[in-house]
Design a protein around this nucleic acid. Structure first.
Lengths: 340, 340
DNA sequence: CTGTTAGCGCCTTCAA
DNA sequence: TTGAAGGCGCTAACAG
């Protein structure tokens, strides 16, 4: 036997009948619109309360042309970064009585375009988290999805507000932190070659190389997951670097694990750092030094921009959050500092 | 300047005009309903295609009384279990052209009821993940939200289909696995006392105690997070148990960390196990033995039940997924087994 | 200040 | 087979 369905909700007509007024009066009272005779208003409110009435969002949406809902397009709900952003956004949106629809493309870049357009039809706006979407597709898509807020992409002259972490600046800070600790020979484990965020990282390295001619930064091809980090341990060690910086925490954790198995001590034999500060970074052995990306804040800022857009206000300036260096046990000081 | 909004979508009237037919004909063609003259149908389809028309989900929703959307009520998007379920559900729902609205109560049990009812108004059904919601509230709420599917609660004679992990059975298996490895003195670190899932765990322990009179299982009060595990290390060691089983992986990881700092070797000095198999459990040092809860499958099963409900079919039987023991490096064999 | 009317965009009887 | 008309539940002009 199938589960009985909740009884049909009451309509505005039920309330009107109960209160002995017209539909419009009820509507007005419910929306606090025009002025209504206090006595009637009270009657209406009483009727609505006793009937436990609330207006159908669907019907309101149709006539008002707005759904009180935004869709978030994410590539993969398994990724802590996206979840964090989703969470931050969802909480902030709820504060403004907005709802969040999720559109998980499950890493299928090809479908992302359609998915977003589809989602847009049932929503008032789109929050786009699409790290892999080609720039030209993005450029064509944004006007059709508007209002849109873009997370973690740096689009030149984007018509859509952008909220992103500044991975480049973050990595520079992380590299500099290593230099301050006396490291002069580093090795960076890359992500996937094609990705924009990987280019960011490499550009940061160029920057540091240029400003510190005495420093060597080797590059080892890596990946984005634990296994990648695990796999490159030998190549990392071969460089002879005193510190290894991984594309992200997952890779760093893989490296940590491989080094542990090989009997290479961290940080005594080699220092290791990650990037992102995912929830478990602080719980590795030793705790992982990393650059923390405030993912929930990303979501909250995205909502702030979105809220402006929805209210036809100029959105706040594009915001780039600087990841913060979290120095933990996996990185050690190389030379004793001069006495202060 | 505010971002321009996407142009208003075309209506069925535009298509009708373009094809030179009536609205109803377009509607029929779009829905493949009544039979339409093939020639006309072709014209309509051509018009729709050239105009890039698709029906307004909002308007359809209003007249059809269904939104093609379900809401998932979760206590906290930061919890890997809920995310896993959400992901599994979202992917499965998408297969059936259904959309997922998230309703994050941010652990606010008091608001959960209202949140769910609110969400229900804009959706066709509710998936409820509410581990802390009192039974009586649940009982009162379910009929009003129907159709509903409940995740990870074991309600006696529930009118709503249930999809859950069998924590009790899982813990028994995990305990037995320890016994097979020669452990005779265990210690269990509890979660929060009030929670139903904690009661499950304790009941599992009673079960094992009863069937193995020679085995000692001590109990230490713990919690649900890393810090709790970290804090109870001394009390765990004081028991003299050869193996510690934590309420969940987070607690186990905290314990692991504290033991490491104290110079207590795992698993040589003491074995440690968690529960859940969160994504990072395999990456601890040593890799954490645990009982893996298939969270994404939970979501997929939930959707299957939901799909039945939505199609007025009797839903599949309630399903309890048995967590699987994942024996990893954090637990060791105590006595050499007799030669086979 | 209140009620009547006309849609929002679509689907579905009902006649033709 | 097709078109016209009514209505899903609500809001926003428009009269009164």
């Amino acid at each position: 036997m199938s589960q009985p369905v909740a009884p049909r909700a009451l309509t505005i007509a039920d309330v009107a009948a109960r209160a002995g007024v017209s539909l419009s009066t009820v509507s007005r009272v419910m929306n606090g619109n025009a002025t209504v005779d206090p006595e009637l208003a009270a009657k209406v409110r009483a009727a609505a309360a006793s009937l436990n009435y609330s207006a159908s969002p669907l019907a309101r949406g149709l006539v008002l042309g707005k759904t009180q809902t935004v869709a978030v397009v994410v590539p993969d709900l398994a990724n802590p970064t996206f979840i964090g952003a989703l969470r931050g956004l969802s909480l902030a949106a709820a504060q403004n009585d907005y709802h969040v629809l999720i559109a998980d493309s499950s890493e299928n870049v090809a479908d992302e375009r359609l998915l977003a357009m589809e989602a847009r039809r049932r929503c008032d706006a789109i929050v786009l988290v699409a790290p892999r979407m080609p720039l030209d597709v993005l450029a064509e898509l944004i006007p059709r999805l508007a209002p849109v807020v873009v997370i973690n992409r740096d689009l030149p002259a984007s018509p859509a507000p952008i909220v992103a972490a500044d991975y480049r600046a973050g990595l520079i800070e992380l590299l500099e932190a290593h230099l301050s600790l006396g490291h002069r020979h580093l090795v960076f484990i890359t992500g996937v070659a094609e990705s924009a965020s990987n280019a960011n990282r490499l550009s940061a390295i160029e920057d540091v190389r240029a400003s510190h001619p005495d420093v060597v930064v080797d590059i080892v091809a890596g990946g984005v997951d634990f296994e990648s980090g695990y796999a490159v341990a030998d190549r990392v060690l071969e460089t002879g670097a005193t510190a290894a910086l991984a594309y992200n925490d997952l890779v760093a954790m893989g490296l940590l694990s491989a080094l542990h198995e090989k009997g290479v001590r961290v940080p005594d034999d080699v220092s290791v750092a990650g990037f992102d500060d995912i929830p478990f970074a602080r719980y590795t052995t030793p705790p992982l030094t990393t650059a923390s990306v405030p993912v929930a804040e990303l979501g909250a800022h995205a909502w702030a921009r979105m809220w402006d857009l929805l209210n036809h206000r100029a959105p706040g300036h594009n915001v780039f959050l600087r990841p913060r260096v979290e120095l933990r046990g996996s990185v050690r000081r190389l030379a004793a500092p001069p006495a202060a």
